[in-house]
């Protein structure tokens, strides 16, 4: 039913190329960034990725104007974010056994008895 929407080919095509230029610029930025400043590389890289993802979602995947699918996407993405907040920001960042745990010992594992250190919860 909704399939028979007519498209304005030239306008749409132009939009595709505009977005392509934007994405290429951002990709270039990705390459330049680590050599401009090093502190915060990770944050900067992820920020650029998010902007790129937003462009792809909105224009290449035609999410713009999709109310229902858009809100579902937001729901799914916020769920992933919450997983990150809980597991990373609340749990691992506060890892309590860094000094005594085998997995963070950083030492060479070959000669150590592994079975005694299977989880970092063992006291």
């Amino acid at each position: 039913m909704g399939t028979k929407t007519t498209v304005n080919y030239q306008v749409e095509k132009k939009r595709y190329y505009n977005v392509l230029v934007g994405l290429l610029l951002l990709t270039t930025l990705t390459f330049v960034q680590p050599y401009v400043f090093q502190a915060g590389t990770f944050t900067a890289q992820m920020f650029i990725a998010v902007v790129k993802a937003w462009l792809i979602l909105m224009y290449y995947m035609h999410l713009k104007g999709e109310k229902l699918i858009g809100s579902m996407t937001i729901f799914a993405l916020s769920l992933v974010t919450i997983f990150f907040v809980i597991v990373i920001a609340i749990d691992v960042t506060h890892f309590q056994f860094a000094d005594e745990s085998y997995i963070t010992s950083g030492s060479l594992g070959s000669e150590m008895d592994i079975s005694a250190h299977t989880t970092h919860g063992g006291e």
Binding site: I82, I86, I90, D91, H94, Q96, F97, T119, H120, G121
Partner: peptide, 20 residues
């Protein structure tokens, strides 16, 4: 979706995570 950690109370999660 937000409560799975109560299966890990004795697994060695951070104390703050247990509380949350």
């Amino acid at each position: 979706y937000l409560v799975w950690g109560h299966h890990l109370f004795t697994s060695g999660m951070a104390d703050i995570a247990k509380t949350v």
